[in-house]
């Protein structure tokens, strides 16, 4: 049984938060009861605070993205579970700017409801609040349920662009408009060759036959709708890029995120990115900006996702926002 390296007591998420906040004490501070991570410094040009959150097990998302140029606060739930509304509410009160607070929410029922309850409470207090919902996973495009596409890796892109825009003093309505535009032009697909280790049982979350992959896997251990024989990486990336582009407007320049699901090495992810860039190039799409690494894992799942954000024909200043300075625990660019 390959158990995760967690403390034996039930509070392993709290221990991880404590360790994270101590390690990154020049960038963040940890608030407890309720738990949230807050940036130490706030850009005085910001008129709106940015708050994101969701289940744990996806680190560095979101706590590793708190800091200058990105999030003002992040709200972690238990592993793969939504945070409580009180965490969102108090983090938002702490992070709100003079024009209020913007919630960046991945599309999952629990996150929608708990951020929604917090938003009602903030409005009751007279704090303006709005939401950008990220729903990029094309594997969940046509399910019969009304829940829509899941939110996954594109959240990183949305948070980066909104963070840079917020630093320019952009107001709440304009941030919402930008965030929705970026989310609507971002799509992802994920594959896995082995399940994550369940934090509950210490065993693989699901069994996969040798030389098969889950095509369209989720980030909470949800199996894909398809298990397929494993193709060579070149062919796999071709298929993934086709599926992502089929769900995006046409364009010639894009931002690309190649994301490890937790059990995938850097040398593998760079193999993937090299293939993705060439596959996009053959389809007339140039990579205007990229991020390669483990940004939105599902604990230690062996797999990766590809996210493409198709830029507007006139760019809409999105590449400048992408290149703008940022200084968080895990994403750092100097101006």
């Amino acid at each position: 049984m390959a158990e995760l390296f967690f403390v034996t007591k039930a509070e392993y998420v709290d221990r991880a938060l404590r360790g994270f906040a101590r390690d990154q004490r020049d960038i963040v501070r940890l608030h407890t009861a309720p738990a949230y991570v807050r940036a130490l410094a706030t850009n005085p040009a910001r008129r709106v605070g940015l708050v994101a959150g969701g289940g744990s097990g996806h680190e560095p998302m979101h706590v590793g993205l708190v800091g200058a140029g990105m999030l003002d606060a992040a709200v972690p739930g238990r592993v793969f579970a939504s945070p409580h509304n009180r965490q969102v509410y108090e983090a938002s009160r702490s992070a709100a700017g003079p024009e209020g607070v913007l919630h960046i929410v991945k599309n999952y029922t629990g996150d929608r409801i708990n951020f929604g309850i917090a938003a009602e409470r903030l409005r009751h207090d007279g704090i303006p609040v709005a939401r950008v919902l990220v729903d990029d996973d094309v594997a969940t495009e046509s399910t019969q349920t009304a829940t829509g596409r899941r939110g996954t890796g594109a959240t990183i892109v949305v948070e980066k662009l909104l963070g840079a825009a917020a630093d320019r003093g952009t107001g709440l309505d304009a941030l919402v408009e930008l965030g929705r535009a970026v989310a609507s032009r971002s799509r992802s697909i994920a594959v896995a060759s082995a399940a994550h280790t369940s934090h509950v049982t210490g065993r693989p979350g699901f069994e996969l036959a040798p030389n098969h992959i889950e095509y369209g896997v989720g980030i909470h251990g949800e199996r894909a709708r398809q298990t397929i024989p494993r193709p060579p990486l070149e062919d796999l990336v071709e298929r993934m890029v086709d599926d992502v582009l089929a769900n995006l407007p046409a364009g010639t320049r894009a931002l690309v995120l190649v994301n490890g699901l937790g059990g995938t090495t850097a040398i593998e992810l760079y193999n993937v990115f090299a293939e993705v860039e060439e596959a996009l190039g053959r389809r007339g799409v140039a990579v205007a900006g990229s991020l390669v690494g483990t940004w939105t894992p599902a604990l230690d799942m062996k797999g990766f996702s590809v996210t493409v954000t198709m830029l507007l024909p006139d760019d809409g200043a999105w590449t400048a926002l992408w290149d703008a300075p940022v200084w968080t625990a895990t994403l750092r660019k100097r101006g």
């Binding site: 509304n85 009180r86 509410y89 629990g110 409801i113 708990n114 309850i117 009602e120 409470r121 009751h124």
Partner: peptide
């Protein structure tokens, strides 16, 4: 109910009571 009660229905009942209070 909003701060302490678990599940989804508990905090939703909190919203209902909050509106009655207001």
């Amino acid at each position: 109910f909003l701060d302490e009660v678990g599940g989804t229905s508990g905090p939703l009942i909190g919203l209902l009571l909050r509106s009655v209070a207001s």
